[in-house]
């Protein structure tokens, strides 16, 4: 996002799609910064893990059992 105006142009329809017109009107900088944070990709998986084969997390306390 090269400039603040361009960023807002991109974010405006997205924010409106999410019903955030009022927030965008009152807090344009906050919504813009939030969009930039929210749209940023999540970090890469640690080596040896693949998003193709890795199912989503389910808390498994047994995994952390002593001695296992």
């Amino acid at each position: 996002m090269s400039s603040s105006k361009n960023a807002l142009d991109i974010i405006k329809p997205l924010a409106e799609l999410h019903g955030l017109q009022r927030a965008l009107e009152k807090f344009p900088d906050g919504v813009k910064a939030a969009a930039e944070r929210g749209l940023r990709p999540v970090g890469a998986m640690p080596a040896g893990n693949s998003p193709i084969t890795q199912p989503a997390h389910i808390f498994n306390p047994d995994q952390f059992e002593r001695g296992k």
Partner: peptide, 30 residues
């Protein structure tokens, strides 16, 4: 507001990837 607003823009794919990442990090810590 600033802490919660980003959630509006997180895609379903990104959320799922974060959950996958969580599983990988849990395996690593274990």
């Amino acid at each position: 507001r600033n802490r919660i607003f980003p959630g509006a823009f997180v895609t379903a794919a990104k959320y799922i990837k974060a959950q996958q990442l969580r599983r990988a990090l849990c395996n690593e810590m274990a």
